[in-house]
Amino acid sequence: MLYGPKVLARLIRKLKPDLVHSLEFQHCGYNVLKAKELYGSGFPKWLATNWGSDIYYYRQFEDHQSQISRLLKSVDYYSCECERDVQLALKLGLTAPVMSVMPNTGGFDLSKLEGVRAIHPPSKRRILMVKGYQHFAGRALTALDALERCAQELKSYLVVVFSASPEIYARVDELRDYVGINIRILPHTSHDAMLRMFSRARIYLGVSVSDAISTSMLEAMAMGAFPIQTDTSCCTEWIECGKSGFQIPADNPEVIAERIKMALANDDLVEVAAELNWKTTQERLDRRLLSKKAEGFYRAIFSAE
């Protein structure tokens, strides 16, 4: 268990970096925490960035909560992509400076997206994109249960499940063969191909018990798909429920189905949402602006030396 931290401590002693920046807590952050304890005095400044579920989900487990709290009390700087996580970190003992909240993805090249997203008007699109994760946080089976309740409304649509976990394959087959939904699993594909798929989708659906922003939701927003995302993410920091998207519970397929039906039936809703979300994309997801913001992290840290 100490192999990774010991090697890391030796590397830090040898390379003498000015800053250690850990990305993610449960593997990278915990390793740095132990390496710092092994290293002793003189450890470099440490900037810790948490990803989606690092605090929100794992804080509910006693052993993890203790580790997270120790980590947060040990860092010199902290960054994340949700205001929600800032508040959670402070409650768990963070006293270090907090960097500007920004998406961990780094944003998009808007010049590449603009022409592609405009080809198909959102109200004319006939595809639903569904996140297929079924694991500690993902609840794709709940999403599929909701889709079954929309079978009649989906008669003229194609449902595409991406990032599908093996656990959902049989359920997808069942919905296709016995319920009559036109549904398929998208094989692994490139990021550009995924963005093109979102540009053809009327709706994006993501169901999980824990997440941060959800990168796929941001991609959907940027490409004009109407986002329907669980309220266990930070989606409310990006969309206005009922106007530019829907926030949904993670464990209620009936409610999720009702929101899907509303987005299928209301052309004005999806058209207006696409305009609002493109404005948000321009203001908050431009790669050029976010790269300067990230660079500012390091400048601020080094200027404080």
Rank of each mutant, 00 (worst) to 15 (best):
K73F: 10
K73Y: 12
S74E: 01
Y77M: 00
Y77F: 05
Y78R: 02
S79N: 06
D85M: 00
D85F: 01
G93W: 01
G93Q: 00
L94C: 01
A96V: 01
P97T: 00
V98D: 05
M99Q: 06
M102T: 09
M102F: 10
P103A: 03
P103M: 05
P103I: 04
F108Q: 00
D109V: 08
D109F: 11
K112H: 14
L113F: 05
E114S: 11
E114D: 14
R117T: 01
A118C: 08
I119H: 12
I119N: 13
I119Q: 14
H120E: 15
H120L: 14
K124D: 14
R126C: 04
R126P: 08
V130W: 02
K131N: 15
K131V: 14
K131F: 15
Q134D: 11
F136M: 15
F136N: 15
A137V: 09
A143W: 09
A143D: 09
L144F: 06
E148D: 00
R149E: 13
A151S: 14
A151W: 13
E153C: 03
V160C: 14
V161N: 02
F162Y: 11
A164V: 06
A164R: 11
S165H: 10
P166L: 07
Y169G: 12
Y169C: 12
A170R: 11
R171W: 11
E174C: 10
E174Y: 14
R176H: 03
R176L: 01
